[in-house]
Amino acid sequence: MGHREDLLEGAVRCLYEKGYARTTARDIVEASGTNLGSIGYHYGGMANLLNAALERAVENWGMELAGAVLNADAEGLTGAARFETYWQHMIDTVTAHRPVLMATFDAFLQMDRSAEVRKMLVNGMRDARHLWAQVFHGIDPELEPVRADQIGSLYQALISGVLVQVLINADDAPTPQDLTAALRAVAASL
């Protein structure tokens, strides 16, 4: 790896260890084995590097969640069993990824002051919606962009809402079985 990738990986590690707000340039340099000048040279500054690290870490978490759905498929699970297996995995991963997931809230607070952060969040949300539509329902966002946005938006709303509830109080958050029961009740009333 070169300094650019070393910095990015070091910054991701720092997000997990210290969180977004408490990570310093010196922390990243120590974690990456690079030097302070490399941050400006490769990323144009600390904020850009932290934002890139946050984007990478959240993307990695999203791909892990997508893998959980694909693993459920490989196990031959369908319907509610597949849905509940995914949600259990999602809830379980919140603990391991908590510092990075909390860091996303720091990014939300910056988006009104930073066009780059807003762009990162907008693009990340769009990519996530398309990923959920594709992984859960096999919808190709290139061929069916409206349908992918609609279905992906529902999953993203569920993920965001459950995520917040688990971060606030995992013991009081909905279980996968609660989500299945609620989804059935809502679908029956339509």
Rank of each mutant, 00 (worst) to 15 (best):
S38I: 01
D106E: 12
I39S: 08
I91A: 06
V58T: 08
R4D: 08
N71P: 00
T23Q: 07
W87Q: 05
Q156C: 07
E116P: 02
A148M: 03
Q134R: 15
S38R: 04
Q134Y: 11
A11M: 04
V58D: 02
A128F: 15
G44V: 00
D172M: 14
A80W: 10
P176V: 11
L158F: 10
R56P: 06
V135L: 05
V69K: 14
Q165H: 01
Q156M: 11
R113G: 13
Y16H: 15
D73A: 08
M111T: 06
E9K: 09
R13F: 00
L143C: 05
L8R: 11
D171M: 12
L158Y: 12
L50T: 01
F136A: 03
L7S: 02
N48L: 04
M125P: 02
T23V: 06
F105W: 10
L101T: 04
L183T: 13
L65S: 01
W61P: 07
L167M: 15
H3L: 09
F108M: 11
A11P: 06
N60V: 13
V146K: 13
M63W: 13
M63L: 12
L109Y: 09
M111A: 08
E144K: 08
A182M: 11
T23R: 04
A182T: 12
L131P: 07
W61N: 14
R118K: 12
N169F: 00
V58E: 07
L167K: 14
L154S: 07
M1T: 07
L179N: 01
N71T: 14
G45I: 09
H42R: 05
T180P: 00
R82I: 02
N71G: 12
N71A: 15
L49M: 06
Q110H: 10
G76C: 06
L131R: 15
L158S: 11
I151L: 15
V186L: 15
T34N: 05
R4N: 01
D6L: 10
I91L: 09
L8K: 03
R13N: 10
S160H: 12
A187M: 13
T175Y: 07
D27V: 04
R22A: 15
H3S: 14
A52F: 01
T23G: 06
Q134W: 11
G124R: 03
E5Q: 12
R22I: 03
A57W: 01
R113N: 12
D112S: 13
P141C: 08
N60W: 05
V58Y: 04
L77D: 01
